[in-house]
Nucleic acid binder design. Structure first.
Lengths: 239, 239
DNA sequence: ATTAGTTTTGGTCAATGTGACTTTAACTAA
DNA sequence: TTAGTTAAAGTCACATTGACCAAAACTAAT
């Protein structure tokens, strides 16, 4: 009884079945590029172990359980597949096209997350979970390429306005590190002096008395982010 | 069989039932205020004719049908309840809190729409469909007050950035009319001269050779909007 | 110890955009 | 003709931004 809809592949039954609801997440983290060493955008994908799209890579996701909110569901399956607990998690979009999945109507509510590199480094990686560069993805299952594209677009957009870059970083950071985040995501060079001026103009960034030692140059001051994650109806604040 | 879930009010069955999926829409239009005559924001609501929240006002909405996309579903139930076909329709958010509806887990994918005043004037109004001022709403069914608040926030936000105001207007309009839209939505006065300067700076606004006659003052030039609606993964373009 | 190399940090300058405000143009109504 | 209205153009001070320059503070090499 419980699974009669899920297994019904024929058209007559499909018309009766309500669309099934899934939660997926696009998880972004910065990792040093193999070659240049500069940070670049990466995201974890999972290999599908059943049809449809068996053996192709897909976004982590799963069904919504009855006792969890949408955000909790995103958080959970993110933790289950990758072991990560994100610094930032926000709803991206609800995808509900008619032909997203071949034998079943599926509506996916997709979240996007930012995780810090320390976390990302610990993330489980296995035969069926692997990290990929966000700008060099193969063909993914379902409409997941389009979803990642949209997530990237939103990320870049938010980066330009809101104060979101800090969720890629740890508690303390230098202004150069913040700039590297911007450069990685927006994919262009920024003037260090002008960038510094802008960042220092935002009240959510706080100087600490500490300096980062160990570079072969003048030691940069460490800063701290004091703002809130916020957006969305659940947790609103900035554009 | 088809309705066994929908009617199951007891907890045991509820745990088995998948969350049901609904589509709702927040529809904004500008109508002249009764008193001042200046345009103000209004939206249509429907009276609930059954439990839960019987006799309270709610957003137009309904279930998703098997052969329609999310946007089509929003468009359809907007047309069915109010007779309107919107100039602008975009996904707002998916609301999926656990206790949005008392006896059933409901996930609502909400759209928001802008309609032109000519359309809005024709809109069906009846015992069970009525227009209300967006800033003076009573207590609505479900979490619909919060949804409207969020839609208002998004509307104001988009107004400040993108070129969205024109979807409230007809094909030809004066710059003063555009300013009235901004003033109504943002709820503050704007300097006519500076506003004109900004609007004329946007390339999507095109001068026509026509002028609006009939005012008791210098006749203003008419303009035309040449941009695209666009946003969202389905139809993307501007921030 | 001195020098070269690096990045941080503070600064200037011109161009651009914005808010507050003034003035003139073009119409209607009395 | 004149008063009243809004349209439309322009001025000025101020803030923001991009391009660029230079000093400061460290390390590494000579």
């Amino acid at each position: 009884m419980k699974t009669v809809y899920a297994n019904s592949a024929n058209v007559a039954e499909r018309r009766l079945a309500p669309p099934s609801l899934a939660i997926s997440t696009v998880i972004f983290a910065l990792r040093p590029s193999e070659r240049s060493g500069r940070p670049t955008l990466w995201l974890p994908l999972v290999r599908r172990i059943r049809e449809p799209f068996k053996d192709m890579w897909a976004l982590p996701g799963g069904p919504l359980q009855h006792d969890e909110s949408l955000q909790d569901a995103a958080s959970r399956n993110l933790r289950e597949t990758t072991g990560l607990s994100p610094e930032y998690l926000e709803q991206l979009y609800a995808f509900g096209g008619l032909h997203r999945s071949p034998n079943q109507r599926v509506v996916s509510i997709v979240y996007w997350a930012l995780v810090q590199p320390t976390e990302a480094a610990l993330a489980d990686e296995s035969e069926n979970v692997r990290w990929f560069r966000a700008d060099k993805l193969a063909e993914l299952a379902f409409d997941h390429n389009a979803i990642v594209d949209y997530a990237l677009w939103r990320l870049r957009n938010k980066m330009a306005y809101g104060s979101i870059a800090y969720h890629f970083l740890g508690e303390f950071f230098t202004l150069a590190q913040v700039r590297e985040v911007y450069e990685a995501v927006l994919d262009r060079q920024l003037d260090p002096a002008n960038f510094r001026r802008q960042i220092k103009g935002t009240p959510e960034i706080e100087e600490t008395g500490e300096y980062l030692q160990g570079g072969k140059h003048r030691p940069p001051r460490l800063y701290r982010f004091t703002g809130t994650p916020g957006l969305g109806p659940d947790n609103r604040s900035t554009p």
